[in-house]
Amino acid sequence: MTHHLFNNKKLLILGVIILLLFWIMFVTADHKSNEGSIEYFLHSAVDPLENGLSLMIGFFQKNIKNILEFHHTQGENKKLKKINNYLLTKQLQFDALKSENKRLRKALEFKNTQTHDLIVAEVIAINPTNWSATLTINRGRNLNIKKNMAVIVPEGVIGRINEVRDYSAEVILITDPRQGNIIGGIIARTKALVLISGKGKQNRFCLVQPAGDSHFTDLKKNDLVTTAENSDIFPRGLPIGRVVKLNKRSEKVINQALIKPIANLTKLQHVYIVRMKQDPITRLEEPPKE
């Protein structure tokens, strides 16, 4: 049997490739800290195409209503059609400008209310596989973006920078289930420290576990989870999610909970990268002079 197997070259080659792939998996699972040169080359080639396609999709999405309306008015007389088209085009342009203006105003207001150094980025691609929750954004090393910088939206935290390239970067969302994608946080009501890990982008929830203890002493549904005071990456007090389900080990012991992220992670168009966090300093009162 063994002799026959080794005589079959094809199976032997297949076996060698499988072993080699397993070896690569083990190596990349343990030491995946920096992007390799092949990955870098692939992303450098693919990202501009994705950027272009993303712009095209945006263009079609914005103008599809315009095109449909144009076809609808074709049956009317020429004069009315001309006027209608003219007015409609203008109206749509105004609407588009208005909504753009509203969005930019909201972004500017958010940026102005923050003490942190924020960079606005556009989402140009979403991870092609269904197994990771990552995004590609159009800001990179050219704007001094670095690995592990926090990525937020006005509603709250969405993730952190995972890989940085010259003109783009990859954001790993808080729902990504991969090993090591854990962030620290606190239950806003009780100030209890917790660890938050992803459950997959289809699941849309994150798992919350107590940081030090084996179970929660006081946790309720709808409790808000925010970033921790002493986080190295995230600005303090930013909302992460709300508790939606309590996992009980026994009648009174809650050892895990599920939170729903505050931000809608499925419809992200623009995100903010926290280039430098500047949390307001809590000043201690000076001791009275004797």
Binding site: L14, I17, I18, L21, F22, I24, M25, T28, A29, K32, E35, G36, I38, E39, L42, H43, V46, N127, P128, T129, W131, S132, T134, N162, E163, E170, R178
Partner: peptide, 29 residues
């Protein structure tokens, strides 16, 4: 099928940025 699966899976692994080899092995098989 084996070669196309291996190459396509590797490309997908590199684009994914997660553990390299999983998609390659699965698509190759």
């Amino acid at each position: 099928g084996l070669i196309i699966g291996l190459c396509a899976g590797l490309l997908l692994d590199l684009k994914d940025g997660n553990i390299i080899g999983i998609q390659a092995l699965s698509k190759m098989l």
